[in-house]
């Protein structure tokens, strides 16, 4: 709890504990990830370094946002913190594919089976569907800024911690469902995921513009602070939305490239080397002596 205008002793104490816990959690998560990736590489697997960098910077950003005083007035500071905890850090963490890493590293057994079962459970699939994830993300934001919730968090430190956790969780769920990099139960089309980004982005900017005009109910921030915070929310949100769009576009680009390669493969291999690419399926229906010989 770092808002300057409600300096209660209990609140400050709670805030210090929560800050410390989040810092330790971020550090622990980063260490576990980096050590796991190292073990994977020692084993001979490839695991791109960029993912290590993404995960470590995600944890670093989170720790920074929770532990240090963000610049600007109280509302601007709050907004900077929320941008990092709810949007930037989740994107960096999700891009690092933590679930894939865990599944690769865990030995076959109870833990791995449990993780897989959890990842493929029906309730999880519902939560990770883009419409539901978008609703969770946007609904939480709406409650925070358009009801008395933000004012209430200034009085009740527990609520403050719960809000932070919700912002982080909602951001993770939304980013996870949109990027869809880790193996989950159901794959969603690019159109569905793009629509989710569009909806959430639009709501985010509507909320930001609304905040510019009128503060969250029950709070009294200085006008300049409020407006700076609202613009930070608007343009900061833009940056993360573009990053999400690029993540989706990279997937599309890769998929198109592979599809193109598949389509043109049979033509390229036409000639002496029959039985490659798409024709592999036909091998079973033909007598093996007629073609199988030239296959490697």
């Amino acid at each position: 709890m770092r808002q300057a205008h409600h300096p209660g002793a209990a609140v400050a104490e709670w805030g210090a504990v929560a800050e410390l816990c989040s810092g330790v959690a971020a550090l622990a998560a980063a260490s576990v990830y980096l050590l796991s990736a190292r073990r994977l590489r020692h084993r001979g697997d490839t695991w791109p370094r960029a993912r290590d960098v993404a995960f470590a910077s995600g944890c670093g950003a989170m720790g920074w946002a929770m532990l240090t005083e963000t610049p600007g007035g109280p509302f601007t500071g709050h907004m900077a913190q929320h941008l990092i905890v709810g949007m930037v850090a989740p994107l960096l963490l999700v891009l690092a594919r933590p679930l894939t890493l865990a599944l690769r590293l865990l030995p076959p057994g109870r833990v791995r089976r449990g993780l897989l079962r959890a990842a493929h459970a029906r309730p999880v699939a519902v939560l990770l569907s883009p419409p539901v994830a978008a609703l969770v993300d946007v609904g939480g934001l709406w409650l925070l800024y358009r009801t008395g919730l933000l004012a209430a968090t200034h009085q009740h430190p527990v609520l403050q911690v719960v809000t932070h956790l919700h912002v982080l969780a909602a951001g993770l769920i939304f980013t996870f469902s949109v990027c869809q990099l880790d193996p989950v139960r159901r794959r969603w089309s690019l159109a569905a995921r793009g629509t989710a980004v569009l909806t959430v982005g639009a709501t985010h900017s509507v909320l930001a513009k609304g905040l510019y005009g009128s503060p969250p109910p029950g709070t009294s921030f200085a006008t300049h602070d409020l407006r700076t915070g609202a613009q930070l929310m608007y343009y900061g949100g833009d940056l993360v939305e573009v990053a999400l769009a690029v993540a989706l576009a990279v997937q599309w680009y890769g998929a198109r490239g592979r599809a193109h390669a598949r389509r043109s493969a049979p033509e390229m291999w036409r000639g002496p080397r029959v039985g490659h690419g798409r024709e592999v399926r036909g091998v079973m229906s033909h007598p093996p002596a007629s073609r199988g010989t030239q296959r490697p």
């Binding site: 569009l198 982005g201 639009a202 900017s205 509507v206 513009k209 939305e241 573009v242 769009a245």
Partner: peptide, 16 residues
């Protein structure tokens, strides 16, 4: 406000 928000986000996606 809503149309502005939608349009603004759509532009970002359109650019990418």
């Amino acid at each position: 406000l809503l149309s502005d928000g939608l349009l603004h986000t759509a532009e970002l996606l359109a650019l990418v």
